[in-house]
């Protein structure tokens, strides 16, 4: 039997401008919006709280001690900067953050890889880490002061305690999520254990691990104020605490916003490095 194909539709049929059907609205589940709408909404999302703040602080409904006006906060930031302290505060805080973060990363990376790769390492270390994750870093401050002292290393230790355990577990999870066939294929090509770790696991998990480091950097920033509770006389967190003592709410606002801004910048830097280093990760056929 020979199939008789139907005639092809004429290619020069006139273009019909129908009203679009089956359209999904922006609010349908998993609906899509245009790039410009997305950008506009992101800007509005940022502006709305600022406008609310502006209106509320100028309305006279709130006392100025409770909520300073945006201009006042800006002025306080400018004063802070012209004192010459802001830059020092920023740098000393960044130093502490990076100190604690790097110390965490240096120890957490090998441990996370061990836990995610080897069953005995997981059995030995994961329950302990799971438990330690819930230990309140703040409550450790008196102990840290006793054991480490009250200088820079104490502040770094607080940030370390706050980020380390979380980081180990997240890195171990990243490593454990490398698909088995990728590992098994290497083994049937003659790879040794260490070669599997080096050529497959570490390479495959790298994008996820950098993402984990990015999240943990955010975590480190949240511990800054706590870390600078310990006998500080400089730093963004310390300045916020000092301003609190004198009820300088404008400076508290300025300090909080400054930490948010630096956090946002480091986050974006991490994302940029991620995109630049792992181009293959963003490919789609």
């Amino acid at each position: 039997m020979q199939l008789e194909p139907l005639p092809r539709p004429a290619s020069d049929s006139p273009v019909q401008l129908n009203f679009p059907r089956n359209r999904r609205t922006a609010w349908s589940v998993r609906g899509e919006i245009s790039r410009s709408t997305r950008l506009a909404l992101a800007v509005i999302g940022f502006l709305l709280p600022f406008i609310a703040w502006f209106v509320l602080s100028h309305s006279g409904l709130m006392e100025e001690v409770f909520m300073p006006t945006p201009m006042k906060v800006l002025q306080s930031a400018v004063d802070w900067w012209s004192d010459g302290n802001l830059v020092t505060d920023i740098f000393i805080s960044i130093e502490r953050i990076f100190g604690g973060f790097l110390l965490s990363a240096v120890i957490a990376l090998p441990l996370g890889v061990m836990i995610g790769t080897y069953a005995p390492a997981r059995a030995l270390l994961e329950p302990l880490t799971d438990f330690s994750r819930y230990l309140p870093a703040v409550a450790f401050i008196p102990l840290i002061m006793l054991w480490v002292g009250i200088d820079e290393s104490a502040k770094i230790t607080v940030i370390f305690v706050g980020t380390f355990f979380q980081m180990v577990l997240m890195l171990a999870e990243d490593v454990a999520r490398v698909p088995s066939p990728a590992i098994e294929a290497a083994r049937t090509m003659g790879a040794t254990n260490s070669e599997v770790v080096k050529h497959v696991i570490l390479r495959a998990a790298r994008p996820a691990m950098v993402d984990t480091l990015r999240s943990c950097m955010g975590l480190a920033w949240t511990y800054l104020v706590v870390a600078e509770l310990v006998a500080s006389n400089s730093g963004l967190g310390f300045s916020i605490l000092k301003a609190q003592r004198f009820l300088h709410t404008d400076k508290i606002f300025a300090g909080i916003l400054m930490i948010g801004l630096i956090g946002l910048i480091t986050d974006q830097l991490f994302r940029w490095v991620h995109r630049a280093a792992f181009r293959w990760h963003y490919l789609r056929s």
Binding site: P179, A204, R206, F278, H281
Partner: peptide
């Protein structure tokens, strides 16, 4: 060995 999927190295 050749597997059904996820065995290539995407990097």
């Amino acid at each position: 060995m050749v597997f059904q999927s996820f065995s290539l190295y995407p990097w």
